[in-house]
């Protein structure tokens, strides 16, 4: 147990800060994926036309290759990628892409493809009558989307959103292969220098298992609060 202690005697603090990095990476990546996914869903809503096709191509690419490959692509080539994207509009930048940035960008872009599909189909599954009722009542577009459609779409998408969160959280482990000092990387260092790999990898494993196991019931509870009154009261 003293191996996991904080301070000089153990690797507790290293693991703790590694875990913080892991969570930060997951949260940033997820927020980026959610924002992009929402934009994609709304733009590609119609299910035909050029915007829909562009999204299909995007989704096919980013869901068709491993996240690890995208992480490497952004880590190795991200600086040049940004430079060549910005050069035509007259901006010249020199930047270094850190493993963290590469990881957030890669996970965000990959999972935006999954979330875009998920959110789009959730919006489509909001009953037509809800749109029609808003139309008939002259509710302004903005309020129709923000107060009627998206809250209901969110409820429909919730299980998928949670599932994607857990999958993305696990994928953060891959960013350690690009040199990020996250939980896994620190566990690996500790394992190497103490020759006690079993303890450290088990600790890292438990971190992920606990988060994944706790998330689902937690979200279910929140969801039930959100759904208050929406299911017909059983008589």
């Amino acid at each position: 147990m003293e191996l996991l202690a904080f301070g000089d005697t153990g690797y507790g603090d290293e693991l703790f800060f590694g875990a913080l990095t892991t969570i930060q990476l997951a949260v940033f990546g997820y927020v980026l994926a959610l924002a992009l996914g929402l934009v994609f869903a709304v733009l590609a809503l119609k299910g035909k036309g050029p915007r829909w096709w562009l999204f299909r191509v995007y989704a096919s690419i980013f869901t068709g290759v491993p996240s690890l490959l995208i992480i490497f692509l952004f880590y190795f080539g991200g600086a040049e990628l940004v430079r060549s994207l910005l050069a035509p509009i007259g901006i010249n930048v020199r930047l270094d892409v850190s493993p963290f940035t590469a990881g957030v960008a890669a996970l965000g872009l990959v999972y935006a493809a999954y979330l875009g599909d998920l959110i789009r189909s959730a919006i489509i599954n909001v009953p037509r009558g809800q749109f029609e009722a808003c139309e008939a009542l002259s509710v302004p577009r903005r309020h129709m989307w923000l107060s009627v459609v998206l809250p209901q779409a969110f409820r429909i998408a919730l299980p998928g959103l949670v599932n994607t969160w857990i999958v993305l959280l696990k994928d953060t482990a891959l960013v350690s292969l690009a040199g990020l000092n996250d939980l896994i990387a620190n566990a690996k260092v500790a394992a190497g220098s103490t020759k006690e790999p079993f303890v450290f990898f088990t600790a890292a494993l438990l971190f992920f298992v606990v988060i994944a196991t706790v998330t689902l019931p937690l979200v279910n509870r929140v969801a039930r609060r959100l759904e208050r009154g929406q299911r017909r009261a059983e008589v």
Binding site: P127, G129, Q130, E132, A133, A136, V148, P151, Q152, R155, L226, Q230
Partner: peptide
């Protein structure tokens, strides 16, 4: 007024 009421469930 619609056949399916179309009330906002939330």
């Amino acid at each position: 007024v619609f056949q399916q009421f179309n009330l906002f469930p939330h």
